[in-house]
Every structure is written in structure tokens, then in C-alpha cells.
Design a protein around this nucleic acid. Structure first.
Lengths: 355, 355
DNA sequence: CTGTTAGCGCATTCAG
DNA sequence: CTGAATGCGCTAACAG
């Protein structure tokens, strides 16, 4: 069904139909004829052909690393909120944490086309920079800092530092004395950290650097051998935590770069406590040997995952303004789409410790 | 950058460039010239203009009710798997559980256009049927039965029934004797159910009907007053469970229509046990009055959520082949897209109790 | 207010 | 093997 056919059936010109569709001048009489024909045929104008002409789709594309994530869904909720309020629709493309797919989908959106793109960033490779520099459509990056596009990111360093301080304080509280560090609930022990790839500057670098700084400022330290790297999945966090628990017997806190990883660590603790029954006084050496009582190991995360909070009562974590970043990101994007705003913007959002 | 400009720069015709791009006959000499120019300019053909001609985008659109769901992400993972293997890309549209938005996005995809659509269904309204009947592009529905499109759904009735039987058995085990039903861990008590809207035939109707049937076949029953209806969210499950716990003191099991709702119920139990300290022998009537010991209330779900399993150790639930349904759905869709397969298909997938 | 015309960027005839 | 010409469905400019 094309506009031309509708025009013939209604006995008018295709331009008249176009005007009818787009609110141009048209007599009531013809308006009625056209309405009737469209009604009967169920005609719907081709969005693509329209776009070919108008270069305007009222559509924005959002590239996300994965679909099943509370933090990401909070960002997209924010985006969707302002988009729908301003008459835009949103299409998502999930890249499954593969940076190369990110490029593919960015290009797809670029010449599909959409009016604008928001990229929820993980790693910014040279390819990314290249794309951002000469993209035909405006892009805003959420979650990572970049100078090649408008971006809006979170204070990961600050959040890491706050968490580091908190953990250091916990450690100090728990391990007050030296040899007899086995008080109920708390015990002397060290901090462990499960991070992510350093290619992710926000989560992999800033957050971890901040954590280290926070620990240090609290008089603690992240020792070598107490660090693991995981993917952004629960399974990966599970493996990393299990590895940690198997190798080091004096861990008091496992801090994880995300709440999802933390969930995996909690799972590992559960599994560990089942297989490894406490056998405290079996050894009779001169020094008390640390036997890991996994129920005394605490886990911390980042992201303030509500699901985790609900079913576990909550772990120490950090709340980021994910929804806000979505909202601001979308607003930024619409500013350049609709008003051609040219001056670049970098926006850093704060956080809130939750413990 | 258009194909015409490339042609000029390379000193050939636009048709030659088109052939170069699409693997038509072209001399090596011109091939080289064109390659060079494209390289330099970073030219990318406009997908939309191509589609306008070819009616083929190698793209499928997927309409989902929400983004942050493990079950849905498993379906989309299945879809993506076969799509990418066969050279297609996938775009997602999230409707936020609003059926009317579903229609909007279906129409968007229809004339955007994509080559095919998969709808992860919740409710099938008259509007939906109308769309399915005269959609220009093939649609397959996943998760709901419909006769207006190829569909692939799960045995929700069977799953509900299996869960019902399981719960009935648990109930029988827990409340063996009559007056002294207070054994450690288990106690006499009734089954409660938190369902969802009846407009969702699969989850709201089939699953619940099956559950009732299963209970009955196990000698138990779902009494009026022990049923609540929730949204597909944790918060909603939380409220419903709290309401249930406040009103009925003899609940032994809360069965929930989804694991997400179950997570909310678990949260409610946690909250309830904090505020409501057990005060068993305060009453001295002739009959022992039930005082809800929330730690004895068990929660069941549907969906086999891995996150929930990880951090809680797992609740009784049902595993559906979500990824499989995604795979089969995508295959079905490609069959009609590429081979014009005409005969309609309805596929029902099984399940597995997890307890 | 209306119809005619000319493209948007590309792929596909059809003559060379 | 190649280029010129045509049209996909639509809107924007223009002349009625």
C-alpha cells in the first residue's frame, strides 16, 4: 500500500494525502475522502521512505552491553522517560559485552538511521573514538568519560574511595587485637577485591584505584594475591571468589566491582561453607592457624542492586544515579538533535554509600 | 557521503560502485580505484536507501515487555544466537509492560522496516490480533499461544500442575498431625498464591490453573483469601506477600507466578520476621493459635532465576527452555523470511521442576 | 487550498 | 563488463 494508491482511490493527488498525514492545508471534503480510504485499507505510511526525505525519524538508538542488568535498565528507563515525553521512540541494541559488536551496531544506527545514539559505554577503543569523531548522527556516551563526544559519567573513583574507607573501618573494627582475632561475627583478616578488565576505565580502573586509595586512607591495604579479575557476570564472580577463598584463609571482606559479581561471591561463600566444615582446633601448632569461617566473610559491591538487597537484606554497596544519567543523557542528545547545540558537555554525577 | 560522490571521485558510474559493494561484475582495475576512494572517505552506504529498494534489511526487531529480566534475556540470547549465525542483526524495543506501547513498536518495526518481528508476548488484545493478521512483515510470537501467528510457547499449565503437586506434598509432609503441627522447620499450614493479571493467558491463567489442579491432585487446595495478584515486579510481590502475611496466620507456602515476584515475597518474609517477633505462648486459650513463624514459610517460584538461586541457595521453581524458545522462534522466523515458508506452526516446549 | 514536479540514496534494468 | 536511466515511497517546493 503506497501513498499513491491511496491518492488514486481517494481521487486526489499524493501530495494531498501527504498533507493529510502531516497536518497540512486540506479541505474538509478531501480530508474526509482520504480518511475513509485509509480507514478501509489500513494504510500506514512507510517510515523509511519518509526518513529518506526528511532525515528525521523521531527515533534514537541505544547501544547497551547487555540486556539483563539492573543498572543498565535504570539508565534506559531514564532515557525512555524523557524520550517519550518529547515524542521520540527508542530502539535498543545489545552487544553482549563484545566491543566489536558495539561498533557494528553504532554503524547500523548511524545509517539506518536514527536521529541520535546513546552509547552505554564499557570500553572506548580506537575504533570507538574514530566513530565518535565522524559520526553523521549525534552521540552521547553514558557511563564512561570521553572527550570525543558528549558524555555523562559517574564518580567511580570517589565511590571506590568511599567503599575503601568503609571496608578499612570494618577491618579495623573486626580485627582489634592481634592473636585472638576471633571474636563472634568479626575477625581479623584482610581485604580482597574482585575487579574487572582495565579496559573499562570507569569500573575497571577508576573504581579500583579509588578503592585502593580509600583502603589506604583508612590504614588498610589491598595486598597482591588478594585480587582477582572477573567478567561482568555472576558466574565469573563465583569462580573468582571460590579461587580467592581456596587460596587465602584470612579474608575478611571480599569487595566486588559490581553487585552482580558480588552475588556470585555470595554464592561462592554459600558453596564454600557447605563443603568446608569448620574444623577449628584440629591443628595444635604454636600459632593459631586461620581456618576460614565463611560466614564471617563479608561481601561488598557497587550499584545498589535492588534484587540483591531484597533477598539478602542488602550488602554494603554504592548507589549511582543511573536513572539520572539516562535522563540527562537523553536531554543532552535531544538538545543537539533539535536545537543543534554545539558546545560539548561532560557531566559527572555523584553517588551515595549504602550500608 | 553518497554513492554518487564516490563514483565521481573514483571516476566511475554510481552503478559500478553499487556493483562493487554488492559483488557484481566489475574489472579489477575499477575495483581498486573504488576501494581506495571508499577507504579514504570512510563511506558507508545508507542502509535505509538500500532497503527502500531491496526490501531487505537483514534485521529483525524484537518487542519485549521489559529489559531487566533474566527470562527475557535468555529468550533474546537464543534469538541473537541464530540471528547472528545467519547474518542478521537484532533490534530491541521495550514496552515497559504497556500493551499499547507494544502495538506502537510493532508498527514502528513493520514500516521501519525490519525483515521480521518476534514478539515476546504478554497479553494478546484485539489490537494485537488485528496487527498479526495483516502485518506486512512476518511475526512470530514467543511465550504466548495465538492462532494468528507462528508461536512458540511453554507448557505453563503443566508446570503449574507440577508445582502444585510439589507444594501439596510439602504441605502434607509438614502438617502430618492435627493439633501438634509444630514440628521444627515444618508446620501445618496452607498454600497461598501470588499470581498475575488474567490477561496474560500463559502466566496469569494457565500457570495458575495448573497450580490449582496440581494442588488438588495432591489433596490440597488453594482457598479463597489466600490469593493475591501482583505486577511482574519484585516490589509488587513484596506488597502482596506482606498483605498475605498480615492477614493469614497459617500460611506454610507462598507460591509465586514468577521468581521475581518470589524474590519480593522473600523480602517480605525477611521484613516480617524483623517486625513481628514470635510470641508463641502468650495466648492461653484452649486451642493453640497459629502464630506465624515466618522462617517456616516457604516460597516457590517459576522461571529458575539464577541470580535468586545464587544468593539464596535456591527455591523450588520451574525451569523453562527460554533460550530454546528464542532459538526456535528465530529459526521459524527466518524460515518464513528466507524461504517463504507458509504453513503455520505452533510449538509447545516442556519444562523441568527444580527443587 | 491543490496538483505537479523533483529528488532523498540506492539497486536494477537495459543498451552498449 | 559498464554507464545511463528508472523508480522504491515519500515530502517539499512551486505554480496554479
Amino acid at each position: 500500500m503506497t501513498i499513491k494508491e491511496i491518492a488514486q482511490l481517494a481521487g486526489v493527488s499524493s501530495a494531498a494525502v501527504s498533507r493529510y498525514l502531516n497536518g497540512g492545508y486540506i479541505s474538509d471534503e478531501k480530508k474526509e475522502q482520504i480518511r475513509k480510504v485509509i480507514e478501509e485499507t489500513g494504510y500506514q505510511p512507510s517510515a523509511q521512505a519518509r526518513m529518506l526525505r526528511t532525515k528525521r525519524a523521531c527515533l534514537v538508538g541505544v547501544v547497551v552491553p547487555k540486556i539483563n542488568s539492573e543498572s543498565i535498565s535504570r539508565v534506559t528507563a531514564g532515557i525512555e522517560e524523557v524520550l517519550s515525553r518529547r515524542g521520540y521512540q527508542m530502539l535498543l541494541a545489545s552487544t553482549d559485552n563484545e566491543p566489536e559488536k558495539e561498533i557494528t551496531y553504532l554503524k547500523l544506527f548511524e545509517n539506518y538511521p536514527v536521529d541520535g545514539i546513546v552509547l552505554i559505554g564499557t570500553v572506548i577503543t580506537a575504533e570507538h573514538r574514530k566513530f565518535l569523531k565522524n559520526s553523521k548522527v549525534p552521540v552521547v556516551v553514558v557511563g564512561q568519560y570521553t572527550k570525543y563526544a558528549n558524555c555523562i559519567y559517574h564518580d567511580d573513583y570517589g565511590a571506590g574511595k568511599a567503599m575503601g574507607k568503609y571496608v578499612a573501618a570494618e577491618l579495623a573494627r573486626g580485627g582489634g587485637s592481634d592473636e585472638s582475632g576471633n571474636r563472634a561475627g568479626h575477625r581479623a583478616g584482610k581485604a580482597a577485591y574482585i575487579g574487572v578488565t582495565k579496559e573499562d576505565k570507569a569500573v575497571g580502573v577508576s573504581r579500583e584505584d579509588g578503592f585502593r586509595a580509600g583502603l589506604k586512607s583508612g590504614g588498610a591495604e589491598l595486598e597482591e594475591g588478594y585480587i582477582r579479575q572477573a567478567e561482568f557476570t555472576m558466574e565469573s564472580g563465583y569462580q573468582a571468589a571460590l579461587d580467592l577463598l581456596g587460596e587465602k584463609q584470612d579474608i575478611a571482606v571480599i569487595s566486588c566491582a559490581t553487585d552482580t559479581i558480588a552475588a556470585g561471591a555470595i554464592e561462592a561463600l554459600l558453596a564454600y561453607s557447605k563443603n568446608r566444615v569448620p574444623q577449628a582446633a584440629k591443628d595444635s601448632g604454636t600459632r593459631m592457624q586461620y581456618i576460614l569461617d565463611s560466614s564471617a566473610v563479608r561481601v561488598t559491591g557497587f550499584g545498589d542492586n535492588q534484587f540483591l538487597k531484597a533477598v539478602t537484606g542488602g550488602i554494603p554497596t554504592v548507589h549511582f544515579g543511573y536513572k539520572t544519567s539516562g535522563i540527562r543523557g537523553a536531554e543532552l542528545l535531544l538538545d543537539v538533535i533539535e536545537r543543534g547545540e554545539k558546545i560539548p558537555v561532560e557531566m559527572k554525577l555523584g553517588f551515595r554509600m549504602v550500608c
